[in-house]
C-alpha cells in the first residue's frame, strides 16, 4: 500500500522534474553568472563573466542577455568551466542515511532505480570501530585511474576538476569500471528505460542523458546545474545539510541550508580526510569524520541484504546454465 503510493508520487515527480530540467537546459545563461531571478539581473551593475574559452572579464550586467543555448557541446563539456576547481565535503556527523541525495540524483538524471550515482553505504571499518553512514558520489579524482585507462578518451578530466563521460564516444570496454577502486561507475547493459521527454533532450556529457546502451555512466557533479548557478542536486536535496559543495579556488563551500563556509576552515576544524587516501587517487571529495553525531548510528546487524530481484527486464539474459 505504502509502497505503491510512493511509486506513483515518485513517478509524478520524475516526470515534472524531467520537464523542468529540459527547459532549464535550453535556457542557460552565458558563462557563470549568478542569476537566480530576472529581477536581479537588471539591477546589479557589474558582473564577472567567464567566456567559454576561459577568459574572465567584467561587463555591465545590463548588457548581459539571457540566450537560449544548446547544451554544451562535447568539446565545450571537455574543457570545463575556467578558473574553477569544484570540491565536495560530506559531513558524516550530519548524515543520517536517509538517501534523499540518491533520490534527488536519480530523479534529476532519470536513472534506473538500481543505479545510484551517489550511494549511501553502511560502513564499519572494523568490529571495534563505530558504524557510520557513508554517502559516496564519484570522487572526481585528480589522479583519476578511470581516465588513465580509457582507450578512446571517452572519459576525461576537465580543468574544473570534474571527470565526465562522453557516451557518444564510449566503446563500452569497461576498463574504467575495472580501474575505479570506488565502484563508482555503472554500465548500461541493456536498452535504457527512458521516457520520450528524456530521449528528446539533446545529449551532453554534462548531464549524461539521454543514456545509451553499451556505455558507462556515473556521478557528474551536475555541471549543467553549476552553469545555471545552482549546486548539484544531491547537495541541494540533503535535508541535513550534510553535503557541502563549492569552488576550491574561492575556498568556499555551501550546503543545502544556504550556509557558506570557508573550505580550509571546515577541513581544519573537523580534521577532514579523503577516502582511501593511500591509493593516491587524490579525490576531490572530503569527508568530515562522524564525531558528535546527532542521529543514531546505523545498525550493522541489519546488514543491507542483496535485493532478491534481478536487474532490468532482460529475464532471458539472466537465465543461468
Amino acid at each position: 500500500m505504502n509502497n505503491s503510493n510512493k511509486k506513483t508520487t515518485s513517478r509524478r515527480d520524475f516526470l515534472q522534474k524531467g520537464l523542468l530540467a529540459g527547459t532549464a537546459i535550453t535556457a542557460s545563461v552565458i558563462g557563470l553568472k549568478k542569476v537566480f531571478s530576472e529581477e536581479e539581473m537588471q539591477s546589479a551593475d557589474k558582473s564577472i563573466v567567464f567566456s567559454p574559452n576561459g577568459k574572465v572579464f567584467t561587463v555591465d550586467t545590463n548588457k548581459l542577455c539571457e540566450y537560449t543555448a544548446p547544451p554544451p557541446t562535447n568539446d565545450g563539456a571537455r574543457i570545463g568551466i575556467a578558473g574553477k576547481k569544484f570540491v565536495m565535503v560530506i559531513d558524516l556527523a550530519k548524515c543520517d542515511g536517509c538517501k534523499a541525495c540518491t533520490e534527488c540524483c536519480q530523479a534529476m538524471h532519470f536513472t534506473e532505480p538500481d543505479k545510484e550515482w551517489i550511494k549511501v553505504f553502511k560502513m564499519q571499518d572494523a568490529e571495534t570501530l563505530i558504524p557510520y553512514y557513508f554517502p559516496k558520489p564519484c570522487f572526481h579524482c585528480d589522479n583519476p585511474p578511470c581516465t588513465k585507462v580509457c582507450p578512446v578518451n571517452a572519459t576525461f578530466k576537465r580543468q574544473d576538476g570534474i571527470v565526465l563521460i562522453d557516451n557518444e564516444r564510449c566503446i563500452g570496454c569497461r576498463s574504467c569500471m575495472a580501474a575505479c577502486p570506488y565502484s563508482t561507475r555503472f554500465f548500461n547493459w541493456s536498452h535504457p528505460v527512458q521516457s520520450k521527454e528524456v530521449t528528446n533532450i539533446p545529449y551532453s556529457p554534462e548531464h549524461g542523458f539521454p543514456r545509451r546502451m553499451g556505455t558507462v555512466e556515473k556521478c557528474d557533479f551536475c555541471p549543467h546545474m553549476i552553469r545555471q548557478g545552482k549546486m548539484p542536486t544531491c547537495v541541494d536535496g540533503c535535508p541535513m545539510g550534510a553535503i557541502w559543495f563549492g569552488d576550491q579556488n574561492e575556498d568556499a563551500v555551501t550546503n543545502s541550508e544556504g550556509i557558506t563556509m570557508r573550505l580550509s576552515q571546515l577541513i581544519e576544524d573537523n580534521a577532514a580526510y579523503r577516502h582511501l587516501e593511500d591509493l593516491g587517487t587524490e579525490p576531490r571529495v572530503y569527508y568530515l569524520p562522524p564525531k558528535n553525531r546527532k542521529y543514531p548510528k546505523p545498525d550493522m546487524n541489519e546488514q543491507p541484504q542483496l535485493q532478491k530481484v534481478k536487474h532490468g527486464e532482460m529475464n532471458m539474459g539472466n537465465m543461468q546454465m
Partner: peptide, 9 residues
C-alpha cells in the same frame, strides 16, 4: 559577507 559561487560566505 563576501559573495561566493553558491552563496554568501
Amino acid at each position: 559577507y563576501v559573495e561566493r559561487l553558491f552563496g554568501k560566505m
